[in-house]
C-alpha cells in the first residue's frame, strides 16, 4: 500500500526530468535514423545513376575506344552523334524499330482485344477448349519454335522482311495478351452490355461504345508492352532479318560493340543514349498504367 502511494505521489519534478531526458535521446535517435535513411538513399541513387552518367559522359568523349571513355570528357564533342547518322545505318535501324513497334502494337492490340471480347462475352461451341489452349500456349517460352518459325517464314517468303518480324511479335503474344485482357473484361459487369442490347445496340456498337472505353487501362498496358518489345528483343530480329539496312536497333547496337577491338565504343554510347532517352521518358510518364497492368496480370494470369 505504501509503495503504491509513493508511486502515485512521486514528485512531479523528477518525472519531468526523466521525460525530457527521454525525449532528448529520442530526438537524437530520430536524427540519426533520418541521417541513415538519407545516406542509404544517396548511396542507392549513386549506384543507380552511375552507369547512366557514365554512358552519357562516354558518348561525348573525344576518342573512340572504351579505355578513353571517362565520366567527364576532357574535350567534349558531339561528333559521335554526327557519326552515328553519317557513318552507320543508325537512322535506318531507328526508323525500322519504330515502324515495327508501332505496327506490332496496333495489330496485336486489335487481335487480342477482339479475341478477349469474344471469349468473355459470347457463348459458343468450343469455348472451353479455346480458353484452355490459350492458357497452355501462353506458358511456352516464345522461342521454343525458333527453327520451325524460320522455316515457315522461309516457305512464306517472309524471311528478311519486317512483315515476318511483326507477325512473329504480334501473333506470338496473342495468347498471353488475350488471357490478360479477358481477365480484365470479366470484371466489367455484363449488365452494362445487356442494357445496351435491350436499347437495340448492335454487337459492334456495344464493343465500340461500352467495352472499349472501359478497358482502356489494360489496353494501354498491352499496347505499351507490345511497343517496347522490338526495342529490346534480340533473338527474333537476329533470326529473321539479315540485311543491314533492315535491322533493328537491338542488333545494330549489339554488333557495334561485339567485335573484339571495341573501337566503336563511344559511337555505341551515343546510340545507346539516343535509344534510352525517349524510351525512359515514355516509361516514366506511363508508369501508372504499367503498374496497374502488371498487378492486374498478376492476379489473373
Amino acid at each position: 500500500m505504501d509503495t503504491l502511494k509513493a508511486q502515485i505521489e512521486s514528485p512531479p519534478a523528477y518525472n519531468m526530468e526523466r521525460q525530457s531526458a527521454f525525449s532528448i535521446s529520442h530526438a537524437v535517435a530520430e536524427v540519426i535514423k533520418t541521417i541513415l535513411t538519407y545516406a542509404l538513399l544517396c548511396i542507392m541513387a549513386l549506384f543507380v545513376t552511375l552507369p547512366i552518367v557514365w554512358i552519357i559522359g562516354a558518348s561525348f568523349n573525344n576518342a573512340s575506344s572504351l579505355l578513353s571513355a571517362t565520366f567527364l570528357p576532357k574535350n567534349p564533342t558531339a561528333s559521335h552523334y554526327v557519326e552515328l547518322f553519317t557513318k552507320t545505318k543508325f537512322p535506318y535501324w531507328y526508323a525500322n524499330t519504330f515502324k515495327i513497334a508501332c505496327i506490332n502494337m496496333v495489330v496485336s492490340v486489335i487481335l487480342s482485344m477482339l479475341t478477349a471480347y469474344v471469349f468473355s462475352r459470347f457463348h459458343f461451341v468450343g469455348k472451353k477448349a479455346g480458353l484452355l489452349s490459350i492458357l497452355i500456349l501462353q506458358m511456352f517460352p516464345s522461342f521454343m519454335g525458333m527453327m520451325a518459325l524460320y522455316n515457315i517464314l522461309w516457305q512464306l517468303n517472309l524471311l528478311d522482311t519486317h512483315l515476318g518480324l511483326i507477325l512473329t511479335y504480334a501473333v506470338g503474344q496473342i495468347p498471353y495478351n488475350t488471357w490478360l485482357i479477358k481477365g480484365y473484361l470479366s470484371n466489367i459487369p455484363k449488365s452494362l452490355d445487356e442494357a445496351a442490347k435491350l436499347d437495340g445496340a448492335s454487337n459492334t456498337r456495344i464493343f465500340v461504345q461500352v467495352i472499349f472505353p472501359l478497358s482502356k487501362p489494360i489496353l494501354t498496358f498491352v499496347a505499351l508492352s507490345q511497343f517496347m518489345a522490338p526495342w529490346m528483343d534480340f533473338i527474333f530480329p537476329r533470326l529473321i532479318l539479315s540485311s543491314s539496312k533492315k535491322m533493328t536497333l537491338a542488333i545494330g547496337l549489339y554488333d557495334m560493340i561485339s567485335s573484339d577491338t571495341n573501337n566503336n565504343f563511344t559511337t555505341f554510347a551515343a546510340g545507346a543514349v539516343l535509344v534510352a532517352v525517349p524510351i525512359t521518358i515514355l516509361y516514366v510518364c506511363l508508369q501508372k498504367y504499367l503498374i496497374q497492368g502488371i498487378m492486374a496480370g498478376a492476379n489473373k494470369a
Binding site: 543507380v48 545513376t49 560493340i257 554510347a269 535509344v275 534510352a276
Partner: peptide
C-alpha cells in the same frame, strides 16, 4: 524525386543497360 531516380533502371531498355554494364 527519389522515386523517379530509382525507377530509371526499370524504364531504360534492358538490353542497352546490359551492354553498358558489360563494358563497365
Amino acid at each position: 524525386f527519389w522515386r523517379s531516380i530509382y525507377i530509371l533502371p526499370w524504364a531504360m531498355p534492358g538490353m542497352v543497360s546490359l551492354l553498358i554494364f558489360r563494358n563497365m
